[in-house]
Design a protein around this nucleic acid. Structure first.
Lengths: 117, 117
DNA sequence: TCCTTAGTTCAAAGATTATTGAACAATTGA
DNA sequence: TCAATTGTTCAATAATCTTTGAACTAAGGA
């Protein structure tokens, strides 16, 4: 874990909300949550349908910096996980209601394959 | 109610999240939610501590356009209410978890006086 | 009628954010 | 070693969002 992540108590509510207010990032989080109950681990290229490699790198950094996801470097790949427990601890119920809302709303879905740790 | 409001099913999750991702708007919503269980009704000038009249007009329009608040014109005043039921229906649990999170986080508070309908 | 109150609209400026392509670094496999 | 894969960084552009002041509307009170 070489990349910088905020600690749980550094996670800011306005920042989380504004970061998840972007449809691309919301789709990424919805996909992570859907796969294996959010315990899925997947590399960035899984999300290429949502944008260019460069642009994804930007959005994934935003998610990481806001404390929504955790990024682990393994070889040349980065594995992504949702920081579900940290978010639940800091803002109980928030992630669940957002993910549930994204399912209801027309947030684009990706195919459900994933790589498990 | 001359001002345009989205219907309940037009309320967009990414838009709600990005609108509430702004600290000023989050403070407004937290204040509305705190007063009389969110049934409080208050005019715009209640929020002048958060910004200039012009700037508030801008932020309050954002909240209204996203479907987070309802604005009723009464004389020269605009009375604001949270669209709690509409939001709960569309995105169950979302508003509660955001408001609870705002209480935990350092979202600035206003004095608790209000005008009830 | 005149003045005050409450809030909006407009245009301009400033500040962020999102998107892109080119160049780069690091790992992996042939 | 060479080439392909995976993803980042940088600089530039485009697009949005925020903030401000001046001018405005509409209602109420003296």
């Amino acid at each position: 874990m070489t990349l910088p992540h905020p600690t749980t108590d550094q996670i800011s509510l306005p920042l989380v909300l504004s970061v998840l207010g972007d449809p691309t990032r919301l789709a990424i989080v919805a996909h992570l949550a859907r796969c294996e109950g959010g315990k899925g681990r997947m590399n960035c290229s899984r999300f290429l349908a949502l944008g260019s490699k460069t642009n994804l790198s930007y959005h994934l950094a935003k998610l990481r910096e806001a404390g929504v996801t955790r990024t682990e470097a393994v070889g040349t790949q980065r594995f992504l996980t949702l920081r579900r427990e940290d978010l639940d601890q800091r803002f109980p119920g928030l992630l669940d209601s957002i993910v549930a809302g994204a399912e209801l709303a027309g947030i684009p879905k990706l195919e459900d394959t994933l790589e498990v740790a």
